Simulated scan of single mutants.
Amino acid sequence: MNAAWTATLQQFDQQLQLAARSEHTREAYARDITYLARLTRLEQPEQVNTLAVQRALAQLRHQGLSPRSLARILSSWRNLFHWMIRQEHIAANPCAGLRPPRAPQRLPKALSVDATMQLLDQPSEGRLQWRDHAMFELMYSSGLRLSETTSLNVADLDLSQQLVKVSGKGKRERLLPVGRSAADALRRWLEVRGSTQDDALFVSEQGTRLSSRQLARRLEKWRLQSDCEQHVHPHMLRHSFASHILQSSGDLRAVQEMLGHANLATTQIYTSLDFQHLAKVYDGAHPRAKKTPDNS
């Protein structure tokens, strides 16, 4: 960088120090601003306009930087120019209105129906395995989050009606159906749960509420016993619930209600999972789906 850019960066860094920003954060700002100086090739930061910023972002994207990295870099530039406005070095922020490219949406991983049955149908013996079986059956049966499962109390269950009351995000309560397999597993667990001062539905050997980490470890052990080759984390049972219900019913609104999503758009990601399933069925079954060899 030339003297003008270096002086501006030093002054900006002093402001970051006054704001008690960490050394790591200040180093990231310095690196990002160095990118801008090198890519724009302008003599002074005051000469940077919106077009120059857009071109710099395009070059970084061409170099293979991820959308997340580009978002961080653009934020650094925006903050620099915002500071320069306060210092009356420039009148407007050249980054105003610019947005980084959106990261591709990651689809949640779900088990196939067969893999789910393999996971849940393994035999269980003894108190801890009966508890684990009841937990995992309930998570898949009702689409529960990990935190929702560990926060359940015995009083939240109504097995006579096969219902469970769940307190989700934002303390929003919802009443969910409990499938027959889950209800049977829960009845067996309650018979051996024993008396404890903790109201928790799922308790440890010490009689205390099971933690999220303990549940995740038990699921991994359960997976290994079932010979399931696919890695399974607790949220996959919820994803599998949503995907399988949607495949069978196509009722997106019902799935939204059962999952406790405030926004339907959050639930719509499962339509992509459903399409992937349909695409596999089509490719395997339709006589015109498979490509024929090119004999030309």
Score class of each variant (00 low, 15 high):
Glu23Asn: 12
Ser243Gln: 07
Thr150Ala: 02
Ser151Cys: 04
Glu125Cys: 10
Gln47Arg: 04
Lys291Ile: 02
Glu137Pro: 08
Ile73Gly: 09
Asn49Phe: 04
Ala254Ile: 14
Leu39Asn: 06
Asn2Thr: 02
Ser212Cys: 13
Asp32Tyr: 03
Val164Pro: 02
Ser181His: 15
Asp13Glu: 09
Gln276Glu: 15
Ala91Trp: 10
His231Asp: 15
Leu210Asn: 01
Leu80His: 04
Glu88Arg: 02
Ala289Phe: 01
His82Glu: 03
Asp114Gln: 15
Ser142Thr: 08
Leu237Asn: 05
Gln15Asp: 12
Gly207Lys: 12
Glu191Gln: 08
Leu175Val: 06
Arg31Asn: 07
Ser240His: 07
Ala52Gln: 13
Asp184Ala: 14
Leu176Val: 07
Arg238Gly: 11
Asp274Leu: 08
Asp294Glu: 12
Thr149Pro: 01
Arg209Glu: 01
Ser66Asn: 05
Asp158Thr: 00
Thr25Cys: 07
Gly194His: 07
Pro101Glu: 02
Gly170Trp: 01
Leu190Val: 00
Thr40Phe: 07
Glu88Asn: 02
Arg99Lys: 15
Trp130Gln: 12
His261Ala: 12
Tyr29Ala: 06
Pro100Gly: 05
Ser69Gln: 06
Met139Phe: 05
Pro293Gln: 12
Ala115His: 09
Thr25Leu: 04
Ala92Lys: 14
Pro100Asp: 03
Arg180Lys: 14
Gln44Met: 06
Asp114Lys: 14
Gly170Asn: 11
Leu273Asp: 05
Leu190Cys: 04
Ser69Ile: 13
Thr8Ala: 00
Arg106Trp: 10
Phe202Pro: 06
Asn49Leu: 05
Cys228Ala: 14
Asp184Asn: 09
Gln230Thr: 12
His233Ser: 09
Ala285Thr: 13
Leu51Met: 11
Gln14Val: 14
Tyr282Ile: 02
Ile73Gln: 07
Ser248Asp: 15
Asn263Cys: 08
His233Tyr: 14
Leu246Ala: 06
Arg253Glu: 13
His235Thr: 01
Ser124Pro: 00
Arg72Ser: 09
Asn93Met: 01
Arg288Asn: 02
Gln63His: 08
Leu74Met: 03
Arg187Glu: 13
Ser226Gln: 01
Gly97Thr: 03
Glu27Ala: 15
Arg288Val: 00
Ser226Ala: 07
Thr116Leu: 03
Thr40Ala: 00
Leu273Lys: 04
Asp199Ile: 09
Leu36Pro: 01
Ala4Glu: 12
Pro67His: 03
Val178Glu: 04
Ser249Asp: 01
Ser75Gly: 09
Ala30Asn: 11
Thr40Glu: 06
Thr271Asn: 00
His261Lys: 00
Gln63Gly: 11
Gly64Lys: 05
Leu39His: 03
Tyr270Pro: 05
Pro100Trp: 01
Gly143Val: 13
Ser147Val: 01
Leu74Glu: 00
Val166Pro: 08
Ala71Gln: 13
Arg78His: 08
